Computed example of a mutant assay.
Amino acid sequence: MKKITAIVRPERAEEVAEALGKAGFAALTKMDVAGRGKQMGLRMGSVYYDELPKTMFWLVVQDERVAEAVEVISKTAYTGNFGDGKIFVSPVEEAYTIRTGVKEL
């Protein structure tokens, strides 16, 4: 299993969640966050925004479906502008259902 962490523009978050659901990735966690990328924030005239609002998604998928999930997120979150986001993929060694105590495969 792999954990996918995706950081996207907040205005694209609902579309990303809907697209993931339609593709069969129903289970996810979504959180509003703030941060900055390589651009180190945003300057508009004399105003400097050090951190910008983003939305972070976490989902765990089977190894064979990682590329599909990444493609759904990438295509849905894409605007072509700086700050579209980032996707990270990490291994998941173990997962347990709290209610039952059952170890996921």
Results as ranks from 00 to 15, higher is better:
75 K>T: 08
36 R>L: 12
7 I>R: 01
41 G>K: 13
45 G>F: 11
85 G>A: 07
3 K>F: 03
95 A>N: 03
50 D>I: 07
55 T>V: 15
19 A>Q: 02
100 T>D: 05
54 K>A: 00
92 V>A: 06
96 Y>P: 02
69 A>T: 08
44 M>K: 11
11 E>I: 07
60 V>C: 13
70 V>P: 03
17 A>E: 05
36 R>H: 14
24 G>A: 06
2 K>D: 01
48 Y>E: 14
38 K>I: 12
27 A>D: 03
89 V>T: 13
20 L>M: 04
46 S>M: 10
12 R>K: 14
95 A>C: 02
59 L>H: 00
10 P>T: 09
28 L>N: 05
71 E>I: 05
100 T>K: 09
105 L>G: 08
93 E>G: 08
42 L>N: 09
56 M>K: 15
68 E>C: 06
2 K>W: 01
63 D>M: 06
14 E>G: 11
10 P>N: 07
27 A>W: 09
78 Y>E: 06
96 Y>K: 02
3 K>L: 13
104 E>D: 01
6 A>H: 04
34 A>E: 15
35 G>A: 10
27 A>Y: 05
29 T>P: 11
91 P>Y: 04
83 G>Y: 01
99 R>I: 10
26 A>T: 15
50 D>A: 15
29 T>A: 03
14 E>V: 15
32 D>R: 13
68 E>Q: 10
86 K>L: 14
99 R>W: 05
43 R>K: 15
102 V>L: 13
28 L>D: 04
19 A>L: 06
95 A>V: 01
80 G>I: 08
86 K>M: 14
70 V>I: 06
84 D>C: 09
19 A>G: 01
100 T>M: 04
104 E>T: 01
70 V>N: 03
96 Y>W: 09
64 E>L: 07
4 I>Y: 02
57 F>M: 04
63 D>I: 11
16 V>A: 03
58 W>V: 13
4 I>C: 05
21 G>M: 11
91 P>K: 05
90 S>L: 15
46 S>W: 14
54 K>S: 03
78 Y>S: 09
9 R>K: 15
83 G>A: 04
95 A>D: 02
11 E>D: 15
105 L>A: 06
90 S>A: 10
51 E>L: 12
103 K>W: 03
63 D>V: 12
14 E>R: 15
18 E>H: 14
62 Q>A: 14
39 Q>H: 12
98 I>Q: 01
44 M>N: 08
64 E>A: 12
13 A>C: 08
90 S>H: 03
66 V>Q: 00
21 G>E: 09
20 L>S: 01
102 V>S: 10
12 R>N: 05
67 A>G: 05
17 A>K: 09
10 P>I: 10
84 D>K: 04
105 L>S: 03
